[in-house]
């Protein structure tokens, strides 16, 4: 049996801190590359929410599966994807995880059980339920995790998925990252009742956890994952968290007034990184920071040096059997 999370090295506090830093550093680098115009289309930065991805993935085994969201870089990295190939994907290069065909919102690595970030809010929920069902059919003790935001709590398909997972007692963990907003819409004005109450209504054990605390997330996730793996059915975690950046990089160009500078500053006080660093022996965090800096510098060099795809091959992979659709012009 493999120990938890060894593919991403999340088995120790040091490993988890390093992953927090890697995600933070990756997002900062990506923000720079959006600003410089190298990344087109922008990104949904995960900065501030890193403890959720790291805490949950620390409770998983390599063969477990996840579905992710439009704000997916953290999940994808914490499940073990190579940062250089994720960055190349954001840059639309052939060396990217998806050969430049998916970009930020569709990054996937099936070899690591990463069934994809997803551009449609809530869409990953039922896909994870299907992956959990598959695992049970195959007699494997793999668990599936669906990450989603507070906005997804109002997608009917997600609530339908809760029902299927509960009726069939499937090994799936629903992780709601409640960062307080769906774009500009406060969760407080959008979610009647409570997130955990919605899961509980289907008989799914639901817990609320401090999503800025990696260890708290890890322990809640471990409990739910262990129960699911042992045949105890689905679980639900509401991770209270916050994004420090805008909803999307476009937001930097706009003047939106949906939250205050004070609110952002308050939440920055709960930054998950210093909290995780405090658990390490003196000097270790700085060493890990330096090693992440090196890794990301190499990733940037790799990604920026990678090939752009050939326009002649724009329709590659449209069909898994290699079917070539007709061209858009015969002239």
């Amino acid at each position: 049996m493999t120990s938890p999370a060894d593919s991403a090295g999340l088995g120790s506090p040091a490993g988890r801190y390093r992953m927090l830093r890697l995600i933070r550093g990756f997002e900062e680098l990506a923000l720079d590359l959006v600003r410089s115009g190298a990344i087109t289309g922008g990104i949904h930065p995960y900065i501030g929410q890193e403890a959720v991805a790291v805490g949950v993935c620390a409770a998983l085994r390599p063969q477990d599966r996840i579905t992710s969201t439009h704000r997916g870089h953290g999940h994808v990295l914490a499940k073990g994807a190579a940062p250089d190939r994720l960055l190349a994907e954001l840059l639309g290069r052939t060396s990217g995880l998806n050969q430049g065909r998916g970009g930020s919102m569709h990054a996937a690595d099936f070899s690591l059980g990463i069934l994809g970030a997803n551009g449609i809010v809530g869409a990953g929920g039922p896909i994870a339920v299907g992956a959990a069902w598959s695992a049970r059919q195959a007699g494997e003790d793999r668990v599936a995790v669906a990450f989603f935001g507070d906005g997804a709590l109002n997608q009917g398909v997600l609530l339908e998925s809760f029902n299927l997972a509960a009726m069939w007692q499937l090994p799936v963990l629903f992780v709601c990252e409640n960062n307080g907003y769906a774009t500009t819409l406060p969760a407080a004005t959008a979610v009647a009742g409570s997130a955990t109450g919605r899961a509980a209504a289907f008989g799914i054990p639901a817990a609320e956890v401090d999503g800025m605390d990696t260890e708290a997330v890890r322990s809640a996730a471990t409990e739910a994952v262990t129960r699911a793996r042992g045949g105890g059915g689905p679980g639900f975690l509401e991770c209270r968290t916050y994004r420090f950046e805008g909803h999307h990089t476009m937001e930097r160009l706009m003047k939106l007034h949906y939250r205050t500078a004070e609110e952002i500053a308050d939440w920055r006080e709960h930054d998950p990184l210093p909290r995780a660093a405090a658990l390490l022996p003196d000097g270790l965090a700085a060493k890990l920071d330096a090693s992440v800096r090196e890794q990301l510098a190499a990733a940037e060099q790799f990604a920026l040096g990678s090939e752009h795809p050939d326009p002649e091959r724009a329709l590659d992979h449209l069909y898994a059997d290699g079917l070539r659709p007709r061209a858009g012009s015969t002239a």
Binding site: I127, G130, S134, A135, L164, M167
Partner: peptide, 18 residues
């Protein structure tokens, strides 16, 4: 159950995993 959207995506999830 009568949850076309969820069971369709669930089948997709199953198709993605063997």
């Amino acid at each position: 159950p009568l949850s076309e959207q969820a069971f369709t995506s669930m089948a997709i999830g199953a198709a993605l995993t063997g």
